[in-house]
Amino acid sequence: MSDRDPVRAHTVRLELDDEPGELLNALGPIADNGGNLLSIFHERGNRTPRGQIPVAVDVEATAERFERIVTALRETGVNVVQAGTEQYGDELTVVLVGQLLQSNLSETLSRIESESDCSIKNVTLSVGESAADPSSARLRLAVHTGASDAALEAVRGVAYDQELQVISPLAGGETA
C-alpha cells in the first residue's frame, strides 16, 4: 500500500431494520471490499424516529477502499446516515476509578462517546473485592487525529458528573 493512501479508522453510522440478518447483510460489503472491522456498536435499546436501530461500525481501510465500502453498502440498500467524515487517527487510553457499578456504566460510556466525539474501542473492568470498594475501568478510545486533548477534556466532564476519577496519560508526554 502506498504512503499516500494510508489505512485509517473510519466510522460508518447505519440505521438497520429490526429484522434477522440485517446486521450480517450490512457487514458483508465491508469484508468484501477489504475493510478491517474494528468494532460494532449496535444500540439495540435505541430506536430512530423511523423505528430503526442505530449501529456505529468502525472500519479500518484506505480512503479508496472505504469509499468502495460505502458505495457497496448503499447499493445493498443499507441506510448509511454518516460515513467518512470522522477519521479516528489517534488512540487514547484512560482509566476511570470510582463506584462504577453503582453509577450507570453504560450511560457513562455512551455519554463519553457522544460528548468527546470518540469511539470506544475496548473497555476492561476490574471490580473491587467488596461492593463498597472502588472499581476501575480501562477505556481505549479512538479519537480524531490531534483531538486527544479535547476528547480528554470531555471525558473529564462526564466523569466529574458521575463522580468518577480519570487517570489519563500525560498531554505531550511519552505515550508508549
Binding site: 482509566v95 476509578v97 470510582g98 476492561t124 476490574s126 471490580v127 473491587g128 470498594d133 472502588p134 472499581s135 476501575s136 475501568a137 480501562r138 476519577q165 487517570i167
Partner: peptide
Amino acid sequence: NVPASALSLA
C-alpha cells in the same frame, strides 16, 4: 482513591 485494580489495568 487510586485502587490497586487501576494499577493492574494500567
